[in-house]
């Protein structure tokens, strides 16, 4: 009896593992194709099979993509644009996260008349297709004297990121017992003191979730990057797009693929290293709607 049950259990487990591995394989396929292609030479790509392992792996394409591939008439690879992206992403993530934290704190624990409405309005704002705001935003940036500057681009990312960061923090803070706020108030703590001494210490998981989300969104952005950057300050996605569309004497798919992976490395690294905390952060309350 027990042995039968055990087998049934084992079959079930095997089935689960099989399904999970099957999907893991499917999810990995594109990355696998990109990675193996980046290690092949052009001849092998042309003649060989998409899924085949490289016969004689070479890092030529990686070196070229990083330092000497052409993006338009400049041939300095992706390196300079990589740092441009860093200069845009870091301030934009920090500012939008901090603003989101304060907003979420107010919307969760310092409600006033109309604050719920404000939250709804902000939430709806997440759904504006970005193509719509390209032109009016360009005009506004022009009026502010920030057209085609890094500052302007950071500002745009902050503005359209804040809706999401606010949503994250608000939903997280709603789960923190209001009694804590009341107790702190009785102790004479004010708005900022409560935030600093009660909420910040509890906020690590949601900071992780928000930072990962914002980092991914802004690093991967193409539309704002191409429209609001100036020459020389273009982010890496724009450079990648130029690189992939630049071919001097035949298309170098291996370089394209290497460049694509380079452009994705920071976000990949963030997910691989911090992914654990991401799920933990979501568990800690971000999903409680």
């Amino acid at each position: 009896m027990t042995s039968l049950k055990l087998t049934k259990y084992n079959i079930g487990r095997a089935f689960i593992y099989l399904i999970l591995l099957f999907f893991a394989f499917l999810y990995l396929a594109p990355l696998y194709v990109m990675f193996t292609t980046s290690l092949k030479d052009i001849e092998e790509i042309r003649s060989g099979n998409l899924m085949a392992l490289p016969i004689d792996p070479t890092f030529y394409a990686w070196k070229k993509a990083w330092s000497s591939a052409c993006t338009g008439s400049e041939c300095n690879g992706l390196a300079p644009y990589f740092w441009n992206s860093v200069r845009i992403v870091v301030p934009a993530v920090i500012i939008s996260t901090i603003v989101g934290a304060f907003n979420g704190y107010v919307l969760a624990k310092w409600k006033f008349k109309g604050s719920e409405f404000l939250f709804g309005a902000l939430l709806f704002g997440c759904f504006i297709p970005f193509q719509v705001i390209l032109l009016p935003m360009a005009k506004l940036l022009g009026m502010l004297g920030l057209a085609n500057t890094v500052t302007g681009l950071v500002l745009v990312h902050v503005i359209y990121g804040v809706a999401f960061t606010t949503l994250f923090f608000r939903n997280y803070y709603v789960g923190i017992p209001t009694e804590l706020v009341r107790a702190a108030k009785l102790d004479g703590a004010g708005f900022f003191a409560i935030f600093r001494h009660v909420f910040i210490p509890l906020s690590a998981p949601i900071f992780v979730v928000t930072i990962i989300w914002q980092f991914t969104q802004i690093w991967n952005d193409f539309l704002f990057g191409v429209v609001y950057s100036g020459s020389g300050t273009q982010p890496i996605t724009v450079a990648l797009n130029n690189l992939v569309n630049t071919s001097v004497g035949g298309k170098e798919y291996n370089v394209d693929m290497a460049a694509a992976i380079i452009a994705a490395l920071p976000t990949l690294a963030v997910y691989v290293i911090a992914g654990k905390y991401f799920v933990r952060g979501l568990t800690a309350g971000a999903v409680k709607g």
Partner: peptide
Amino acid sequence: DFAVAGGGGENAMTVLKSRAISGN
């Protein structure tokens, strides 16, 4: 150099319009 590749100039036109409208 201000190269904006792709889409037969579609992206480049978007950039141009935005820059024109921002006065730059």
